[in-house]
């Protein structure tokens, strides 16, 4: 039961966060007239529904186990405070106040880990980073380099990886990947490095 209360609480907060954000962003979308409902009608309805669902979930969490609030409170208050401070600070120095979202997101993950223990941080970071790495390298460094970088990061995501076995498997995957997608299907993907990636502008 403990886990379920935590899940409902975190889900509720997530829905409120996203719904609230969508309401804020969509505040100036035109509503149109009844004959021609405007851009803002459905987003607004859906956002309110999402926020409402979130509040019901919070309520359910408290009904299941009131103590869950106690577990969540420090992180919740901390993240909210950090988020306000960052947003305010950013607007003071002339930057986007939207930077306040960053501590809110980090805070959400910490809160989720607190109320639903057992997050797989290592695979989470490794797999996400591996995916991002592939995207950031494939059209500049080519398919082979992108595969080596991204798949190695992914393999580092689990302690079960046996590196000699991985090396052999990587070679097979590269042969398979280049063979299927570039030669067989003829996709316009560079195999070898063609340029310095844009995000490494300082190396140019």
């Amino acid at each position: 039961m403990r886990v379920r209360a935590g899940q409902e609480l975190a889900t509720g907060l997530l829905f409120i966060l996203i719904g609230g954000g969508a309401l804020y962003i969509g505040a100036d979308y035109p509503m149109g007239i009844p004959q021609r409902p405007g851009t803002g009608v459905l987003p607004r309805i859906l956002s309110w529904c999402l926020v409402g669902t979130g509040f019901v979930l919070l309520l359910q969490a408290v009904v299941i186990e009131a103590a869950v609030v106690k577990r969540a409170a420090p992180t919740l208050i901390g993240a909210t405070a950090a988020s306000v401070v960052v947003a305010f600070g950013a607007s003071m120095i002339g930057a986007e106040p939207a930077w306040g979202v960053l501590p809110a997101v980090i805070g959400f993950f910490l809160l989720m880990d607190r109320v639903v223990p057992g997050s797989a941080w290592r695979p989470l970071f490794a797999v996400t980073l591996a995916t991002v790495a592939f995207g950031m390298t494939v059209d500049s460094l080519g398919l082979i380099a992108a595969m080596v970088i991204s798949l190695t990061i992914c393999a580092a995501g689990t302690p079960e990886t046996r590196w000699p076995e991985y090396a052999g498997f990587l070679l097979i995957m590269i042969a398979l990947g280049v063979g299927t997608f570039v030669w067989l299907l003829g996709m316009p993907i560079p195999v070898w490095p063609v340029k310095v990636p844009d995000w490494l502008w300082f190396l140019r």
Binding site: V132, F134, G135, V138, S150, L151, T158, F181
Partner: peptide, 26 residues
């Protein structure tokens, strides 16, 4: 551990091959 690597690769190349947009992989 090996399956995971292959699935990740197929996901990445699959999405990239849609429009050749790296942003979509992100």
């Amino acid at each position: 551990r090996l399956l995971a690597i292959s699935i990740l690769f197929f996901c990445c190349i699959g999405v990239y091959s849609l429009n050749n947009l790296w942003s979509e992989v992100l």
